[in-house]
Every structure is written in structure tokens, then in C-alpha cells.
Write a protein that binds this DNA or RNA. Structure first.
Length: 256
DNA sequence: TCATCCCTGTGG
DNA sequence: CCACAGGGATGA
């Protein structure tokens, strides 16, 4: 799921439910997460729920519980009922539970006194540094966008969507972008992410991302996952190539 | 900067 | 059965 729009949607749904509430207990249903409850002094009040890039931070009295959903993780809010398959961690509150569900078990949960990850500026923050930063990189622009040390929050889907909307070929070296292209990119990054956020993110057929309330995201990609299908703008078949080891989709006519 | 690996499920 | 999947750490 989980790029900025999905993670932010998750945080926004959870925050009003648990901010200020007492976390009573944490149960690890997956042995590899057994360290989590052991590292926490409970009960503890949740001061806030925050997003840093694609990380979710539960700010407790003295520590952070830091969750990364990776490929298949999601956080669900439950007031009653059985746990879904692949539930790994349960956070118990007086009025309900947060479930960390993760089919592929690549997601992580850590307890730490502070958040120490090398993340670049958030993709929804001020992007005025973009021209200077891009000038210094020979990486393909799509690979640059995916590197969380450059910009935090963009993943494979939205990198493709952003470059489509900016009309830029994902293979172009970052430093080769013209000032006009950089300006387009700067405008399109928040536009695409906000649009996806308004739709509660993207839910693809095979990966059941959902918000904590169980809703699917409605964002419909223009190019991601559409190899061979006609471009929604010009009808040219969407092309898939591999960049930085991951599938990369673009329209060879709209993106130069 | 790139390949490899983590893990499991699904679709071709 | 194999390829592939939205992420990221690691080691060469």
C-alpha cells in the first residue's frame, strides 16, 4: 500500500480515535514482533500519531512506537469481531484495538526513544530545493524520486504517476531536466499526492490496502500497472521498463 | 549504484 | 511453476 497518501490516510483515521487515549496493552501475535511489548511500559498515553515519510509514529509518554508498513502492512481499527488473517500486533485501548495486519511480514514495528531515520524533506513540504538537488544527481529521475533520502514519502506508484503528469520520461537523468521541467515536477508532486490523499490512496486489485475503517482507496492510476493498455490521454500503449530494480510504467508519447 | 534478500500470496 | 508485487537494508 503504503506510500505517502495511504500512510497519511491511515494516520488521519487513527489520530482522532486514539490521541490522548491510554494504550493498555500490546500483544504480539507474530514471534518476530515479541520485542515490541517487552520494550514498552504500559499503560501509557498516546500523545499523538504522526507520519514521517512512510513511517507511522505513535508518540507515547517516553517512547515512540514506530511502524513501517512496507509492502503489505496496514493498520486497522477494531471495536469488536475476530481478527483478520495475518494480524501481527494488537494495540489495546479502552474502546477498541489497533491491528497491525501484514500478509508478507515485511512490515516493521520498533520501540525507540527517538526517531532516527535518514529521510529527506517530506514530499508534501516546501520543494524549493528541488532544482539544486536534481542538478547534482545523475540517477534516473524516477530512481531519484524513490530514494527516501532525497524526498520522503514517494513510492513506486506515485513516482510513475507524478512523472506521467509532469510529462517526463522516467529514465531521464535527474540533472538533465530543464528548468521548465523541474518547475512542472515541483507543481505536480503535491498535486498528485493531494489528489490521491483526497481519494484515500490507491487500492489495487491484488493488494488490499484499506484505511483503518476498512475503506478502499479510490485513486485510479494513469500509468502504474497499465502495461499495454492505452494511455488515458493519447491512446498510446503504456510501456513497462525496469529502473532501479522495479517496474516502471510510462507513456512513450506523453513523456519525453 | 546495483544486486540480493526479507516473506507470502497471487496471477499468468 | 515461475515471475512479480506498492519498500528498504545490506553488502559488494
Amino acid at each position: 500500500m503504503p506510500e505517502l497518501p495511504e500512510v497519511e490516510s491511515t494516520v488521519r483515521a487513527l489520530r482522532p480515535r486514539i490521541r490522548g487515549q491510554r494504550l493498555l496493552a500490546v500483544r504480539a501475535l507474530d514471534p518476530v514482533l515479541a520485542h515490541v511489548p517487552r520494550a514498552m511500559a504500559l499503560p501509557a498515553a498516546v500523545q499523538d500519531v504522526e507520519r514521517r515519510g512512510k513511517y507511522i509514529l505513535f508518540r507515547l509518554d517516553t517512547v515512540f512506537l514506530i511502524v513501517h508498513l512496507r509492502m503489505s502492512g496496514r493498520l486497522l481499527w477494531r471495536e469488536e469481531g475476530a481478527y483478520p488473517p495475518h494480524t501481527r500486533l494488537v494495540l489495546e485501548f479502552p474502546h477498541g484495538e489497533v491491528l497491525f495486519v501484514d500478509v508478507r511480514r515485511l512490515g516493521t514495528a520498533e520501540v525507540a526513544r527517538e526517531f532516527r531515520e535518514e529521510l529527506g524533506p517530506d514530499a508534501l513540504s516546501d520543494l524549493s530545493f528541488l532544482p539544486q538537488a536534481l542538478r547534482r544527481s545523475r540517477a534516473p529521475i524516477k530512481v531519484w524520486l524513490l530514494d527516501q533520502r532525497n524526498l520522503a514519502g514517494i513510492g513506486n506508484i506515485y513516482a510513475a504517476e507524478i512523472l506521467f503528469r509532469a510529462g517526463i520520461d522516467p529514465r531521464r537523468p535527474a540533472h538533465s531536466l530543464t528548468p521548465a521541467e523541474v518547475a512542472r515536477l515541483r507543481a505536480v508532486i503535491p498535486a498528485v499526492l493531494e489528489e490521491a490523499l483526497a481519494a484515500l490512496g490507491t487500492t489495487l486489485a491484488d493488494a488490499a490496502y484499506q484505511t483503518p475503517e476498512g475503506e478502499a482507496g479510490d485513486y485510479a492510476p494513469w500509468v502504474y500497472g497499465r502495461e499495454g493498455l492505452p494511455c488515458k490521454v493519447c491512446g498510446t500503449p503504456i510501456v513497462r521498463v525496469e529502473l532501479g530494480g522495479r517496474g516502471t510504467y510510462f507513456c512513450p508519447r506523453c513523456q519525453k
